[in-house]
Design a protein around this nucleic acid. Sequence first.
DNA 1: CCATTTCTGTATCGAACGCTATAAAATAGG
DNA 2: CCTATTTTATAGCGTTCGATACAGAAATGG
Lengths: 197, 197
Amino acid sequence: MSPRGRPRAFDRDRALRVAMELFWEHGYEGVSMSDLTGAIGISAPSLYSAFGCKEALFREAVALYNAPERAPVARAIREQPTARQMIEAMLRTCADSITDPEAPQGCLVVLGATNCTNDDVREFLAGCRNADVDAIRERLDRAVAEGDLPATADTAGMATFYMTVQNGLSIQARDGRSREELHAVIDRAMLAWDAML
Amino acid sequence: MSPRGRPRAFDRDRALRVAMELFWEHGYEGVSMSDLTGAIGISAPSLYSAFGCKEALFREAVALYNAPERAPVARAIREQPTARQMIEAMLRTCADSITDPEAPQGCLVVLGATNCTNDDVREFLAGCRNADVDAIRERLDRAVAEGDLPATADTAGMATFYMTVQNGLSIQARDGRSREELHAVIDRAMLAWDAML
DNA sequence: CCATTTCTGTATCGAACGCTATAAAATAGG
DNA sequence: CCTATTTTATAGCGTTCGATACAGAAATGG
């Protein structure tokens, strides 16, 4: 039951993956439609007919980047049994991702639209980051409810602190810090855990 | 002894200040020459004759931003007697600066060219950030030499950790965190101090 | 006064941007 | 076969980008 007209001659999923890698490396406005069509190997009308416009393509690329199996926050919440392990796993997964020698350095969500002229795109990524803070705080609240954390724990403050560290890791990765150096930063961030409870 | 030809009809220092504020808020590529001439109130040739090109104007604007009397790292090194006080002062001065209601949120050096198409500009700001890390580490090394810190202290690791926090603060400021929330993040970052010595 | 120098606004340059009108090519249903 | 539908490539749309050629205006030196 293939569609009616002429079949698409390129792999849409592969095109999206290429677009994600370009946006990851250069940010939303650092990648032109000409860069995209060149890297994918198709012409502009093909790209527009498959994805709509540049902004829609970017949002799909971010969704692929944030897929549940690879997003550090979602994975850590799903896989780790305690609040402390969840926070540390999130940071270490993130550090490994943003220093992967096969991928761009730094996080697409953190760095992809920091100074974007397109307000919608900028606020979209800010919303992604704020959603991560909220998800972390909710996980910590659950830990309080389960007795994993004391009732006096400032879960919002803790979530903001570790999100700040995670954001800073992306800048440091872009500035050339190695994977080992970033994990040493995480060691130090985790030293504060017991003291802030 | 005024110069020979027709005198400049605008205030160059004021023009640079306006440019700095625009670059601070929108980043290097988020500000067009047309934005600049419009905000300053002069025509393009006047701006070019006074500053050369857009990149040169940006570098002057960053130099103004990094003036010794307002740069958090230089100020903290100059004014604070101990390593711990220096680190905390740097972070708190930075937090106050990037949440000033009269100024753009976040740091020009951290956010001004994260995904800049112009490689020279991007590497220029990365160099500013790395110079700050080096300055912090050198201050910590001095503290070791003076007996203020134990000889076992990993000064490079400590400098990278606190620079990571400082970088993250700018993202958080852009994402709407209040001055009080950022100072609470700094409280938590300083909790790790004794544990990492 | 004149000659020189520098700054000014107008008007515009070539290049790149996101995007699309158009028509040919390739499939399916009938 | 024919028609409908969708994708394809070419070529170009209007806009904005950073930067400048040009000529007139405003100062100094002689």
